[in-house]
Design a protein around this nucleic acid. Structure first.
Lengths: 337, 337
DNA sequence: CTGAAAGCGCTAACAG
DNA sequence: CTGTTAGCGCTTTCAG
């Protein structure tokens, strides 16, 4: 069956294209009978408006660009799923831009521009070269919504997650379990790391526990060697060693647990751990990680909602999503008691 | 800066739109000087052709629809990544269709049609309701490429994976380790399950080991209760119990390992396991799973290549991708010896 | 080698 | 309430 167009319906119904258009959209009054006739014919012909024509006329492509560093990481996949769900309901297509590496940024900028997407949702990382690309597109007038943090110079709402609260909850839970020597196992000092660290510190402060700088460790490549070098020494003297850790990501928590296991330190029996993310795949394994859950799908959903409403002319504020602690099996009272 | 269009360049260069077009595409001869001038101006104006106009004229949207059941599952994310990579290089955008549940099929069919995608890559599951949607679109002339299996009535190349070989390799590896009572831990009898089962049987045949029907288990929801009911009885009598299992998916293998651990059966010490998939997240945990690796990213890449070449007029055959066994830590000689 | 003109499918302003 | 017309940005004849 050949693709039906507006004209085909018009011909069959014996009316003009514009009448068909009106009947289909219902914006303007159309004679009820002709309208019904038109709708019937449209259904018979299985008519679907060609968005390319409409896009040209209405200067809207009904396409939204979604930029992530790596869809392969479960976190981003969840966010994308949320965005896609909202966009689909709203009648927009999601163009996926999987920015691997700095050098591809200009190609994606060009692609987004050529397709004239109606807006861009950016869920990249702070340090990532893509940020320049986003700035460029934003300066050309592409509406943008950011996830997790604001890219300097890009105007548009941001979907934030209460990272500080997450860090606070994690540390406080460990404190409540009786721990006082609590390590912060972090990565490089980027936005997420430091916000969560801030939360950790605020919990320690509140409990009146001084934070020893050597308990704040900053990992690079998370290898066994690095653990040996950076965490190993802390564990030498049992009377001063940390009895628990708040790991800045679930992945980090798991690396730590594996490494500890290699040294015959069992979690949670000899050492307690809290993570951050709530990655679903990590619940398949014992011990199930106690962690701070961030609602990844909702992050994507909220971003899409912000963007589409903004396209509709609403002025919107940033969103701050809540987090919660999910209790599982990696916290116990300190081993030293 | 306002978006530059063809006319803007033409105005500045003092030539006609069509000349600019020719200069930009290089298809037809253009005076070298004017061409250079045009190219220079285009660069100054940071010109990116608007695909909506081109799409209309050339009846091509430079958009490919990619359909997966759930991007959240690591397997699909990897496939999508491969597809996206190829498409981006080829200058096509990837429209992601995350088909969750049957009822959304018509909406996605309509969306793909309205956007007039140039083709569709379908990586859904056999039993999924989407297959009807794909049939409908294919019958309307949308070129399709399928991954993993052919949808009846849809004409187009398929990217296959050598499932049978995978099943064979897995079972044979267990046999070589000395196992004879080997369980096939499968799911419902769909295409993937049965192909892998076929491979398992062929290895058993080749080794002259009769396949006991009760060793072919077919799980539904993979709960502990179901394991207790379906696998528990097999393990009662140590002299007839299986000493190893080939699990149809990595996930299944992990469920099994956890369940066994709950019964104080340690892998690989008391029981050997091989999986199928090679999910990356599963390598973080001990014991690391010995498994059949399928090249997920290449599957997506190959599908995109097939589609784009087909759009270019080439007639293409199905592709069969190889698998390989990756040796890790879940196989040992049978415990009973 | 270059310009003029038509038209892809749709919408909207204007007339009737 | 409905038809006519123009035009979104691009490509592609067809003349010159």
């Amino acid at each position: 069956m050949k693709k039906a167009k507006l004209q085909d319906i018009a011909d069959r119904a014996g009316v003009a294209r514009s009448t068909v258009d009106r009947a289909l959209h219902g914006r303007s009054r159309v004679n009820v009978e002709t309208r019904d006739k038109i709708l019937r014919i449209a259904r018979e012909l299985d008519y679907h408006p060609d968005l390319r024509g409409r896009a040209l006329k209405m200067s809207s492509s009904f396409l939204v660009g979604m930029v992530v560093p790596n869809i392969t990481q479960s976190f981003y996949a969840d966010v994308v799923q949320g965005t896609e769900e909202y966009l689909e309901k709203a009648g927009y297509g999601l163009m996926l831009c999987n920015i691997i590496g700095e050098e591809c940024t200009p190609r994606y900028v060009s692609m987004l521009e050529r397709h004239q997407v109606d807006g861009i949702i950016s869920c990249a990382e702070v340090k990532h070269g893509w940020n320049n690309g986003l700035r460029e597109l934003a300066s050309k007038g592409f509406p943008a919504v950011m996830i997790n943090f604001r890219v300097d110079g890009v105007d548009g709402p941001v979907v934030f997650v209460n990272q500080r609260k997450g860090g606070y909850l994690a540390a406080m839970r460990l404190i409540e379990a009786g721990h006082r020597r609590i390590m912060f196992l972090g990565g490089s000092h980027d936005y997420l790391n430091d916000e969560r660290l801030w939360g950790y510190k605020s919990a320690m402060d509140e409990a009146g526990i001084p934070v020893s700088p050597e308990f704040i460790v900053s990992m690079g490549d998370w290898t066994t060697d690095e653990f040996d070098a950076k965490v190993g020494p802390l564990l030498k003297d049992k009377s001063t060693a940390p009895t628990a850790a708040f790991a800045v990501y679930d992945m980090a928590a798991f690396r730590l647990i594996s490494w500890l296991r290699g040294r015959d330190i069992q979690v949670p029996h000899n050492f307690s751990v809290v993570g951050f993310d709530d990655l679903p795949s990590l619940t398949w394994f014992a011990p199930c990680l106690t962690t701070v859950k961030q609602k990844k799908k909702e992050m994507g959903y909220a971003a899409a909602e912000l963007l589409i409403k903004r396209l509709g002319g609403e002025e919107l504020k940033d969103v701050l999503l809540d987090v919660e602690l999910v209790e599982r099996d990696t916290i116990a009272p300190p081993d030293c008691l």
